[in-house]
Write a protein that binds this DNA or RNA. Structure first.
Length: 882
RNA sequence: GCGGACGUGGCGAAACUGGUAAACGCAUCGGGCUUAAAACCCGACGCCUUUCAAUGGCUUGCGGGUUCGACCCCCGCCGUCCGCACCA
């Protein structure tokens, strides 16, 4: 705390003090930002003709929630390093920024504080834009847009209508969380312990007719194409593959022993038809039509179904709730076992959305079924004997067996291997009997995009009693949100609006109603990357521009988007290809997912959360309240969140330490894919380094770079080797996203420069020149990370220059200087390190072995060398006997 | 519950393709500069045994395995975190 830049640093007397030369970020950062602006360093054209290779860097655009947070600082710093580095490498870099501006928080603000969502959003955008600009990001701000602007969402409506005409849109029914008191649909996050967050009312599932984008049409391709995304993290591809969830199994029909409400069988999907002989019951989802039929005549069943409805639609909640069921009294016949029948249960863990909404329960070989069977005392007949286990000793406890084994108690399947061989045999038999067939099933569901909300893009259709659903004609786009809405009544303001929804049918002219639902905000973010290529165009995208810039070469954002946003964007790009808007199928060629920013959390004696600003860390290690000196409990390090008050405001950090310091620290501490802990000590350390680098320049005493000297002292040669090795090392680190390593290499270079400052008098030959070279190199190597300081360093070294580091090419290493003069080889005996030897690089094997043997002679005395392992330039290992 | 990841000194971490574990930074300690403090500069710093010392022993969450050699590959545990379709 106490080493923060103090006010005296900018005070006139301190600035005049000859012994306190300081890099003044407060003056320098705005000055260099203005210089970049004036020279339009970061501008690129929609359809450039300069022949440079294109490189599109994009970070996930922010939701304008109020102020930027540290996650944004991390995200945009990472992207900016890439953008600046690639620019230096000769690419034409497109690096745009915009606003994911529709969403629930704006509506919450309207309801809680009476501020209009548009006003709230645009004010937030203005604040956050200014904050981002203070970070010194190399953005082409001319491309900025917000998704809540009709100039953006009107084009989105056009895309939707194109999808509609192409058969990529469908109306389907689906279940939503319904708050009966607020009369509104709730997001899963708004359902807390089964109750609406605002009203506290018990939430119910309700069926609504909604718009769906047919992402399932592309399921096979979305899965197969994952293989080609070789610059995506493996774990993201895995998560997507699991989400798409291709499975091979069987669909089969179980005949009811007595028909119910006109239904005489139940269709089931299973991935394990081989375990059919281990059936114990059949279970249907509470939303299944058969469940509704039973509930209509059985009050107990109705009560159970109603209770399940209160669970809401969250899969996580459904699957973690205790498994419960209700026996309907109905029975189904077994497809293979003559005369056998099984009870039909309604079960709260069966999902209507997956498969057919009905399963057959085989408790011995499925954990959920086993939990259910144990609870209700249903039989658990085993049909797969684990490989290598004797039949007599095989019993089932609380763990279902789902591994490889041999079929038993299974009629014609006995002796076959489960699951693969037995599965094929079971499907063949189902098909022969005509009661079922082998199918491929997908977990992926169509994408419901209807939201009963105001602050979103209106869905551009009109409902006419005569004509049905009619598309809004293109020339009437955009369908604009009305501004005069009120939030004092529950429900969707668009629906309450006195006039907005009442329109004439475009087809027959009769009185009709606008669709009052708006789009899921994921729609907005599913094509913004394409819009950035021609943000002012009259049509959604311009082929010349998207064909040039797409795909995004490097996309950067949080791991929390690993599935939905990325999958929707991949789908949308494919859909836009079908409708002719774009030529590529994959939007993001390269993906990097960053970790979260975390911080310690603090509470006072009464267990109330405290902001980091409210506490003070004393030298003795105690932590107290700044105001009162009362003790503070230091809690876990966890993700920054408003509720735990463990947030640090980037605006305040930048004001105190400067943008470069914030950028440097956020890059320096961990690998960017990992969570990082924001600490006061870390920022202060980064700040000190900015000053140190600048001091090293001033220590040169205004030397300018003359001709290359004829001779270099050992010290000068050593520094030059470090300089050129640093270029190689930093370049490699930046290329591989190891920014923390790049930072470490810069520290090493700075240490080497400081060492050179202290070289003795007889080592001065060429040393000043070498120091100049090292410092200029340092300025250029840090420029992607600390761009303002880099400019200031460069301008100080070259007082007459007009050039900006932002316009310079990346430094090239002199490889002749990089090669080592000698290498250290580890000498091991039996794999244990026993010594080291110095040899010339590439020395002959025999000579190295002789030297190695001599170096560990004692340990080899009286022993027989069985084997000599020799790895050039690395190790020698002697394996001995006796 | 299902799916995905992560685990190395006091702390954040580094370690190429299986080849000297701990680069670099933070914290701490010692010294210099200073009337003094801060800042700054120099040095030490994985753990253990030992009076000292190292050319000693141990060490990458835990337990096994493969290998001349394992943070890295394989098997089994433990712990922590993220996602689960209407938050963005």
């Amino acid at each position: 705390m106490n080493v923060a830049p103090s006010s005296d640093q900018t005070a006139p007397d301190a600035a005049a003090a000859p012994d306190a030369p300081r890099y003044d970020f407060r003056a320098a950062e705005p000055r260099w930002q203005a210089a970049w602006d004036a020279r339009e360093c970061f501008r690129v054209e929609d359809e450039p003709t300069d022949g440079k290779p294109k490189y599109y860097v994009l970070e996930m655009f922010p939701y304008p929630s109020g102020k930027i947070h540290m996650g944004h600082v991390r995200n945009y710093t990472l992207g900016d390093v890439v953008a600046r580095y690639k620019r230096a490498r000769g690419c034409a870099v497109m690096h745009p920024m915009g606003w994911d501006a529709f969403g629930l928080p704006a509506e919450n603000a309207a309801r809680e504080r009476g501020v209009h969502p548009a006003k709230w959003t645009w004010e937030n955008i203005a604040t956050m834009r200014a904050e981002l600009q203070r970070m010194g990001l190399s953005l082409d701000w001319r491309r900025e847009f917000a998704t809540c602007d009709p100039a953006y969402y009107g084009h989105q409506q056009k895309l939707f209508l194109d999808f509609l005409r192409t058969g990529l849109v469908e109306r389907q029914e689906s279940w939503v969380n319904w708050d009966p008191v607020d009369g509104t649909v709730l997001a899963n996050e708004q359902v807390i312990d089964g109750r609406g967050w605002r009203s506290g009312a018990l939430v119910e599932k309700k069926k609504l007719s909604q718009w769906f984008l047919r992402i399932t049409k592309f399921a096979p391709d979305l899965l197969a194409a994952l293989d080609g995304l070789d610059r995506w993290p493996e774990r993201v591809r895995l998560m997507q593959a699991n989400w798409i969830g291709r499975s091979e199994g069987a669909r089969l029909r179980f005949g009811l022993t007595a028909p119910e409400a006109g239904m005489d069988d139940v269709e089931v999907y299973t991935t394990r038809p081989d375990t059919l002989f281990g059936m114990s019951f059949l279970a249907i989802a509470p939303e299944h039509p058969l469940a509704a039929a039973v509930a209509a005549r059985d009050p107990a069943a109705e009560a159970f179904v109603a209770e399940c409805r209160r669970l809401g639609t969250s899969e996580a909640v459904i699957e973690t709730t205790e498994k419960r069921g209700h026996d309907t009294g109905l029975r189904v016949a077994h497809p293979f076992i003559e005369g056998a029948s099984f009870p039909v249960w309604i079960a709260n863990f069966v999902l209507m959305e997956y498969g057919t909404g009905a399963i057959f329960g085989c408790p011995a070989h499925d954990q959920r079924d086993l939990d259910f069977a144990r609870k209700y005392g249903l039989p658990v007949p085993p049909v797969v004997l684990p490989a290598g286990q004797p039949l007599e000793s095989f019993t089932l406890g609380d763990k279902a067996f789902d591994g490889v084994g041999m079929m038993i108690n299974s009629g014609f399947l006995d002796g076959l291997e489960a699951p693969v061989a037995a599965k094929a045999a079971a499907i063949a038999e189902l098909e022969r009997r005509g009661v079922g067939e082998g199918v491929v099933n997908w977990r992926l569901r169509d994408w419901g995009v209807s939201r009963q909300r105001y602050w979103g893009c209106p869905i551009p259709v009109i409902h006419c009693d005569a004509c049905g659903v009619v598309a809004v004609p293109d020339d009437q786009l955009p369908v604009r949100l009305p501004e005069d809405v009120t939030f004092d009544v529950p429900g969707n303001p668009l629906d309450h609006h006195p006039s907005w929804k009442h329109v004439a049918c475009p087809s027959c002219g009769a009185a009709a109603r606008r669709e009052t639902d708006t789009f899921d905000t994921f729609v907005d973010s599913s094509w913004y990357f394409a819009r950035f290529c021609s943000p002012l165009a009259e049509q959604p995208v311009v082929r010349g521009a998207v064909d040039h810039w797409m795909p995004v070469d490097q996309y950067i954002g949080g791991i929390e988007h690993a599935i939905l946003h990325l999958l929707y964007s991949r789908f949308f790009t494919r859909a836009m290809k079908v409708t002719g808007h774009i030529g590529v199928e994959e939007p993001f060629a390269g993906l990097f997912t960053q970790g979260m920013v975390t911080h310690e959390s603090y509470r006072d004696a009464a267990n109330r959360w405290l902001y980091p600003d409210e506490i003070e860390k004393r030298a003795d290690g105690s932590v107290v309240l700044r105001e009162s000196g009362e003790p503070v409990q230091v809690g876990r390090v966890e993700a920054m969140s408003k509720s735990k008050r463990n947030t640090v405001d980037p605006g305040a950090i930048i004001a105190r330490f400067g943008a470069d310091t914030a950028r440097w620290f956020i890059l320096s501490d961990n690998p960017p894919e990992r969570d990082m802990e924001w600490t006061e000590a870390g920022v202060v350390g980064a700040y000190r380094f900015t000053q140190r680098l600048f001091r090293l320049i001033e220590a040169l005493g205004g030397v300018t770079q003359g001709l290359v000297p004829d001779t270099f002292s050992d010290a000068a040669r050593k520094l030059r080797r470090t300089t050129h090795r640093s270029i190689v090392a930093v370049t490699e680190a930046l290329e591989s996203f190891a920014f923390n390593v790049a930072v470490a290499r810069v520290y090493e270079l700075a240490n080497a420069i400081a060492d050179a400052e202290r070289a003795p008098a007889d080592e001065q030959a060429g040393l000043a020149w070498a120091r100049f070279e090292a410092l200029e190199t340092a300025a250029r190597l840090v420029s992607p990370m600390m761009p303002h300081l880099a400019e200031e360093m460069y301008a100080t070294l070259h007082p007459a220059t007009e050039r900006l580091v932002a316009e310079l090419a990346w430094p090239e290493p002199d490889m002749a200087l990089v090669v080592a003069e000698s290498v250290t080889i580890a000498v091991q005996v039996m794999g244990k390190l026993r010594g080291t030897i110095e040899v010339a690089p590439g020395a002959a094997e025999a000579a190295v072995l002789t030297a190695a043997e001599a170096s560990v002679g004692r340990l080899l005395e009286g022993k027989r060398i069985v084997k000599r392992v020799y790895v050039p330039n690395r190790i020698v290992n002697f394996v001995i006997a006796g």
